[in-house]
């Protein structure tokens, strides 16, 4: 076309602009590698197998939560009820008989409870047209109320089936059990997202819900399913978290909603929907837990972690945006 000469001219003028797409696509991975290099060079313990194991064990529940959050953010929504749901599931787990036989029933109950909460979120967002922020904020508060009403506000401990400790902290073939679980969930949901018609529809609905609706896609169903996936994964994350922590208080999952959102956003998603994916989100999770680990290893006060995390979230999210986007 007539534009060729001009295109060449433009390419000359903006070498920087050429670097930008690369950075936008792989910026977080580059950042993650840099962060790990910093960690390795400043703290010899970082690469110790024990440390790596700890780091990943601790990060696995966040990985699960972020995995689910990815689905919801792809629909141009977000789920603030994740943390509250994790706490609630933890409370449920301790409220049933502390017997290893009950592990499977507890899992099933937690998943069913999560599916219900997710359905309510999705229903509010699609059928009642409540903005995702408010719908899930409300669910978060309601779950909090239900949980405290149930526990009367008292912390619970020692009523978990002992098997949960193994799930949360044990290793299998020297790989943490909860990492195996995370790996399995990643595999399943990567297939769902990247190989099934549902995954395709999720990206289409997220990218342009109106166009998807007018092309005969049941946009509402796709969105409700995304909230359900998110909540089910949060429930599972809650169980692994309680296994890791060992004891339960009513706030055990606090902060996971915002951390998971931050991880997904760092991973290249957009609140406008239709952008991002599982592996970006997981890289975002790794960034967060490496920061956390590094702060501990370097002996900084734990509060420093919050400061660094905050700065990194803002910075990392700014990679993906071009001005006027």
């Amino acid at each position: 076309m007539s534009g060729t000469t001009i295109n060449l001219e433009r390419a000359e003028t903006s070498r920087l602009a050429q670097a930008k797409p690369f950075f936008q696509k792989y910026g977080l991975y580059v950042f993650l590698v840099l962060l790990i290099l910093i960690a390795v060079s400043t703290s010899p313990q970082f690469l110790a197998p024990r440390n790596i194991q700890n780091l990943l064990t601790e990060g696995a529940p966040l990985g699960m939560a972020a995995l689910g959050q990815t689905f919801v953010i792809l629909t141009a929504g977000l789920d603030l009820s994740v943390g509250s749901l994790m706490s609630s599931v933890a409370v449920i787990a301790t409220s049933i008989a502390p017997d290893n036989v009950m592990i499977l029933p507890i899992f099933l109950i937690a998943i069913a409870f999560g599916a219900l909460v997710g359905f309510v979120n999705g229903w509010l967002v699609t059928k009642r047209k409540v903005s995702p922020f408010l719908a899930t904020l409300a669910t978060m508060i309601v779950l909090q109320g239900l949980r405290f009403a149930w526990t009367k506000g008292a912390p619970l401990s020692g009523h978990l089936p002992p098997g949960f400790r193994v799930l949360g902290t044990g290793t299998l073939l020297s790989i943490p059990v909860n990492l195996w679980a995370l790996g399995f969930l990643i595999l399943v949901f990567a297939i769902v997202l990247y190989r099934t018609t549902y995954g395709r529809k999720l990206y289409l609905v997220g990218g342009n819900p109106r166009a998807a609706f007018l092309s005969g896609i049941h946009a509402d169903r796709v969105i409700i399913a995304a909230y359900m996936i998110c909540a089910v994964l949060a429930s599972i994350a809650g169980l692994f978290l309680v296994g890791y922590v060992g004891s339960v208080d009513n706030w055990v999952g606090k902060g996971y909603e915002l951390d998971s959102i931050a991880a997904v956003m760092m991973g290249g998603a957009s609140f406008k929907g239709g952008k991002g994916g599982i592996f970006g989100s997981l890289a975002g999770v790794l960034v967060l837990i490496v920061i956390y680990n590094l702060v501990l290893l370097l002996g900084f006060p734990i509060q420093t972690q919050l400061v660094v995390k905050g700065l990194v979230i803002i910075l990392a999210a700014s990679f993906y945006l071009t001005r006027g986007d």
Binding site: I261, A262, M265, S270, F271, I314, S318, G324
Partner: peptide, 8 residues
């Protein structure tokens, strides 16, 4: 930065 207010 053009980052969403929620994240900033």
């Amino acid at each position: 930065l053009g980052v969403h207010p929620l994240i900033v």
